[in-house]
Simulated scan of single mutants.
Amino acid sequence: MGKLKLVLEDDFKEDFQIVAIHCGAAPFKLAYYLNKYVNLRLKRRRTDLAFSKDGLEVQFPLFEFKDTVNYTVYDLVSNTCKTAKAHTTASGGLFGTQATEENITTYLVPEYKNVDYFLKITSEYDQAPINKLLSEVNKIKPVISSYHIENEQIKSKNNLIFS
């Protein structure tokens, strides 16, 4: 009798497009500029994108806009999270405890450490018109540059899957 072999493929795919944005502004300011100049209506979600990494709880600010007319969802997420980790050491004396604090920067997508924000575009259509969006984003004064990143180039794309 023949053997039945089941092959499980990693077919966990979500079709989305990613725009990398280099901008020194705070997340809420960038969301404001995108709302004003690109005609989005980004709002901060009640819960940020949070997970544990190396024993630290990291949270990335997350803004969302659901365009029901065009069946498109826009998510703006910061790529960096800065957390402080406290260390206490005992020196053995009367006043022997010394507290130090270490600032740790965690990246949502570590292979793109120089990117400040990601704009994730999920559309019911095959492709959202991204060239017009890029030209409008690049016209915003605080934005240094923005460009499209292919999904295949992102190694840690599972960090960008949130709903």
Results as ranks from 00 to 15, higher is better:
3 K>Q: 05
5 K>W: 04
5 K>F: 10
8 L>V: 13
11 D>C: 13
11 D>P: 08
11 D>W: 14
15 D>V: 07
16 F>D: 01
17 Q>R: 00
18 I>S: 05
18 I>V: 15
19 V>W: 01
19 V>D: 01
20 A>N: 11
20 A>R: 11
21 I>F: 02
22 H>K: 14
24 G>S: 12
24 G>R: 12
27 P>K: 05
27 P>M: 04
27 P>A: 11
28 F>K: 07
29 K>E: 14
29 K>I: 08
32 Y>S: 06
32 Y>A: 05
42 L>D: 02
43 K>G: 03
43 K>Q: 10
44 R>H: 04
45 R>L: 06
45 R>N: 08
52 S>R: 07
52 S>A: 04
54 D>K: 06
54 D>M: 03
55 G>S: 02
56 L>N: 12
59 Q>I: 05
63 F>W: 15
65 F>L: 11
69 V>H: 07
72 T>D: 05
72 T>Y: 05
74 Y>I: 11
75 D>N: 15
77 V>E: 00
78 S>R: 10
79 N>A: 07
79 N>W: 11
80 T>M: 09
82 K>F: 10
83 T>L: 09
83 T>N: 10
85 K>F: 03
89 T>Y: 03
90 A>H: 12
91 S>P: 02
93 G>E: 15
93 G>C: 11
93 G>Q: 12
94 L>V: 11
96 G>W: 10
96 G>T: 10
98 Q>S: 09
99 A>Y: 06
101 E>C: 05
101 E>V: 05
105 T>N: 15
107 Y>F: 15
107 Y>M: 08
109 V>T: 14
109 V>M: 09
110 P>Q: 11
111 E>A: 11
112 Y>M: 12
113 K>F: 13
114 N>C: 12
115 V>K: 00
115 V>P: 01
117 Y>Q: 02
117 Y>T: 00
118 F>I: 09
118 F>E: 06
119 L>R: 02
119 L>Q: 01
119 L>N: 01
121 I>Y: 01
122 T>Y: 00
122 T>G: 00
123 S>M: 00
125 Y>K: 14
126 D>T: 12
127 Q>K: 08
128 A>K: 05
128 A>L: 01
130 I>S: 06
131 N>D: 14
132 K>V: 13
134 L>E: 10
137 V>C: 04
137 V>H: 02
140 I>K: 00
141 K>V: 06
143 V>P: 07
144 I>V: 13
145 S>K: 15
146 S>I: 02
148 H>G: 00
149 I>C: 04
150 E>H: 08
150 E>Y: 01
150 E>M: 01
151 N>P: 03
152 E>M: 07
152 E>N: 14
153 Q>S: 10
154 I>A: 08
154 I>R: 02
154 I>V: 15
156 S>P: 04
157 K>L: 12
158 N>V: 12
159 N>H: 11
160 L>V: 01
160 L>I: 05
